[in-house]
Write a protein that binds this DNA or RNA. Structure first.
Lengths: 335, 335
DNA sequence: AGAACGAATGTAAGCGCTTCCAACGACGGA
DNA sequence: TCCGTCGTTGGAAGCGCTTACATTCGTTCT
């Protein structure tokens, strides 16, 4: 119907066609109350006819703010981050702002991308191990409101974490209650602050109980890595229980145990972290994380910062909950 | 360290401090080749010192494009959409553009939000049942490049779908091969074009085979709804096989069967769709969807449109793959 | 030596919007 | 009747950037 390469309709054309000034158009399309009702209607009608779609860039420039927030996360493939992002998006959208996302996942120029993102938003949250502290500090230094998620504090920036250490202690206590005395820990504390906290709490709890804590058996964060590491580990030694850094690793370990002809929890107990959907169906004992709440909380905190409400930085720690299923040991003959 | 309420550093300050014009700053920070090396270095140094973060709004306005793409999806909670978004983000980022997301999930003013989003991007993809065709048409009408994902075509807009009908036939054939002759279909074809396609293909395949196809047992798209619907269904009747519109519904149905003391696939066979992670661990026969590829393809197609490369609209159908596990019936005694 | 050229940089005009301030009438009160 | 007021609208500046075009100034060529 319409011609090719149509230039977008601007406020000027609407103004001309409606026989008013651009100021009036601008007002009619927003302020409403400042412009007479008939004029307002006419302008809106013309805007509609012309399919006028105001350029947000123009508005952003004029208003001096983007009305958009960013979020940086390592990946979206696990259920973990997706939930967090969703919780974030929900709240941010409710505040009338848009959401820019950036996955750094093994992107070579992550720092650059984050810096670029910083120029498009009024504030952003940065999750876990995505970019170097240096980059975070640099951005914070420009005055851009920032919230860190599941990542140790950098300078004076707000931080939100889950209580990994606490749940690690709960988990350790539960495992000890089952009578387990020899352990392995699958995951790399250096790879993520979450894992570091989990391992630290776990180690501490065992030490407190007079049990010798294991060194971590380092492996990446996915099912495949968990499988490989567990297979190697279990064919070499046989701990009472294998504590995995997250559910995906545990799922891999479960498969490895099965392939080695080992029963879980009969021959070896197994636990995860995060309580992803698959954990429920594999009866995996794990730790539930309030992912959605994590994202939502970050969004709200960031908004306070953006509007200059929040005064001093306060770290926030969200509670976690131990989910006992059957992979950790027999509970009244259920298995 | 620095004062409160610092106004962001602009290109003017950098220019002044470096003793050059803003044009030179702009060039030094990008063109590079047009400005003498020493000047370039000096400018970059000053920009660094001042923590200059160029406002993307200014640039967008000057260049007449946002260098950002949008994506609209219903939800992110299932693994399905998350993967699609991730595939999309990956490609878009590689093209040097940013990604704006919008989840419409039961948001009352979805249409408005999508319209607003349209003013911030150079193009966007719209998934499944998020907004009315009317809204899509309205946006397409403004000339904004658009790609539809898992949604029936609207006007002359590009569309990308997965081959639901084809896989539905494969699935039906497989089920018939197991000797199943009475069926139920759990899911609402009116709720999503994907489900509609699945049901249509399934129904057709049964009809072709001379088997009476069931009417759909309508239910929402989540585990809980699947559980409720299946529980009701299975306590009323006993089909040989229950074909579920997606894995989450199937997971609910599985639980329902278990609670009713029914064995799967002994008493009733069960299948899903999507091949989410949990499906693997519940040994659910399902249909694998190339979600990541879906997002990536959409991103590329959109980019062609934005750059005016693509000429005529072509619908794209991505292949799916039947994943046979054990929930559909016994395969050489494996169960 | 003077002209022609090219590299380096500056000038300034926008990009599309918001909003302060001024202008303009119509109206009511003194 | 005149003026102050208020409701409505327009004029115009300016947000921070890019870029076409102009300017400047060494070089080189004749």
């Amino acid at each position: 119907m319409s011609g090719r390469e149509r230039r977008p309709v601007t406020i000027y054309e609407v103004a001309e066609r409606a026989g008013v000034s651009i100021a009036t158009v601008s007002r009619a399309l927003r302020d409403s109350e400042l412009v007479a009702a008939p004029t307002r209607r006419r302008v809106q009608q013309v805007a509609e006819e012309l399919r006028f779609r105001p350029s947000r860039a123009g508005r952003a420039l004029a208003e001096g703010q983007h009305a958009a927030n960013g979020i940086v996360f390592p990946d979206l493939s696990g259920p973990y981050y997706a939930e967090v992002v969703l919780g974030y998006e929900e709240v941010v959208a409710k505040l009338g702002r848009s959401v820019l996302i950036l996955a750094t996942n093994g992107r070579p120029n992550a720092a650059e991308a984050v810096l670029e993102l910083a120029g498009r938003v009024d504030g952003m949250v940065i999750m876990g191990r995505t970019v170097a502290d240096e980059v975070v500090a640099r951005i914070a230094d420009t005055g851009l409101p920032l919230v860190l998620l599941a990542r140790p504090p950098v300078g004076l920036v707000d931080t939100i974490m889950t209580d990994n250490e606490h749940s690690a202690r709960d988990l350790a206590a539960h495992l000890l209650g089952h009578g387990h005395r020899t352990f392995a820990f699958l995951g790399d504390p250096d790879e993520s602050p979450d894992v570091a906290g989990r391992y630290a709490g776990f180690r501490q709890a065992l030490t407190d109980a007079g049990v010798d804590p294991p060194d971590p058996t380092r492996c990446a964060f996915d099912v495949r890595a968990g499988y490989a590491a567990a297979r190697e580990l279990l064919s070499r030694t046989r701990p009472n229980a294998v504590v995995c850094a997250n559910d995906e690793v545990a799922l891999g370990a479960l498969q490895a145990a099965e392939d080695l002809g080992l029963s879980v929890p009969g021959d070896v107990a197994l636990t995860g972290w995060d309580d992803i959907m698959a954990a429920r169906y594999t009866r995996l004992t794990t730790v539930h994380q309030p992912m959605r709440a994590l994202g939502a909380t970050a969004a709200r905190r960031l908004d306070e910062r953006i509007h200059g409400v929040a005064t001093k930085t306060r770290p926030d720690v969200l509670p976690t909950r131990l989910i006992v299923r059957t992979s950790c040991g027999p509970h009244d003959r259920e298995v």
